[in-house]
């Protein structure tokens, strides 16, 4: 996929859509969030041109930090070519006049909901997460006053209740996504709905991770080189998902896989959820057991379609 620059009609919007005062307010919240890793900073979330739940928090964070020289990548479920990712990427290409890319290594800002890219992140890169529910304790404690006190006094025993339930029901800690972590051994944090497969990538990461929750009006952050520990029990240590299958298209053995049902007979394939990682590998000559399948073709068509626009 080629890097492309889109020209906007100047004057229709302020740079990156939000007005400068709002961006300053959000930047102040971000600074505070970076200063206190894992702490949820309240901010005045604005009405955005997409509904809550479609990534308004992440969009506002991106809008506040994006500059003219940034290269922007947006993924949804790990893929660059899903509807939501395409429309948010085009939104910033238009209102911020920035270059966009699908390659992780080329991007300076990567906005995401469900995944951290497979390719290792570098110093200087910023991950922006769209967070639906910033409060990891909310499912167990509905009162905001109480959860704030728990954060203030570091009372995180309650979170283990969900792990206990999981072990009691499934014989292992089964939580797949939004797996709670302790940041810098101080604040309990929900890493938004990324699979726990990606949790270890947050630990001592080279990149800056910013989390924006639009509806809940919270921003939090994991600065570079910060300890991030996934909670577990002494006798049930944290582990990540793994697959027996390799990626059907690129043959990658150790990436996070999506299961795709192909027909009514139950035929299925496992493919890398990170579409950029997968196409990079295919370009480099790797091939999986179902290489050349019509879905392989399909993604190439979709990419061509977008190029043509």
């Amino acid at each position: 996929m080629t890097t492309q620059t889109n020209r906007m009609q100047h004057g229709a919007y302020n740079h990156a859509y939000l007005d400068e005062q709002t961006k300053r307010m959000i930047r102040r919240a971000i600074l505070k969030a970076v200063a206190i890793p894992g702490y949820q900073v309240p901010f005045g979330s604005r009405e955005m041109p997409v509904p809550y739940g479609w990534g308004t928090g992440g969009i506002q964070v991106t809008a506040s930090i994006i500059g003219q020289d940034d290269v922007y990548k947006c993924i949804d479920q790990g893929a660059d070519d899903t509807t939501n990712a395409v429309s948010i990427r085009r939104f910033f290409a238009r209102v911020a006049d920035v270059a966009t890319t699908e390659r992780t290594a080329e991007a300076t800002i990567i906005q995401t909901r469900h995944r951290i890219p497979e390719a290792p992140l570098k110093e200087g890169q910023i991950m922006v997460y769209q967070v639906p529910q910033p409060e990891p304790l909310r499912g167990l404690e509905p009162r905001e006053t109480e959860t704030r006190a728990m954060h203030a006094y570091e009372e995180y025993g309650l979170q283990y209740l969900s792990l206990y339930e999981s072990v009691a029901a499934f014989g292992r800690i089964a939580g797949g996504a939004g797996y709670p972590v302790l940041v810098d051994e101080r604040y309990l944090m929900s890493p938004s709905p990324i699979p726990k497969f990606d949790n270890p990538k947050l630990h001592q990461s080279e990149a800056l991770h910013l989390f924006g929750a639009g509806r809940e009006k919270r921003i939090y952050a994991v600065p570079p080189h910060t300890d991030v520990r996934s909670l577990d029990f002494e006798d049930y240590p944290f582990d990540v998902q793994s697959w027996d299958e390799v990626c059907a298209l690129c043959g990658c053995p150790d990436s996070y896989k999506d299961e795709v049902i192909l027909d009514d007979e139950g035929t299925r394939m496992f493919v890398c959820s990170d579409s950029s990682h997968c196409s990079d590998r295919r370009d480099a000559g790797h091939a999986g057991p179902m290489a050349g399948h019509e879905l392989d073709q399909g993604s190439a068509d979709a990419a061509n379609l977008e190029d043509a626009e």
Binding site: L140, L158, L161, Y164, A168, D235
Partner: peptide, 25 residues
């Protein structure tokens, strides 16, 4: 806590006081 199991309800004070070993709890 009506949303978690009876066992988890009974074990909660242990977790609140720092117990992190499932088997013992």
């Amino acid at each position: 806590r009506m949303r978690v199991s009876g066992g988890a309800n009974v074990a909660e004070p242990l977790m609140m006081n720092g117990q992190r070993h499932y088997g013992q709890m």
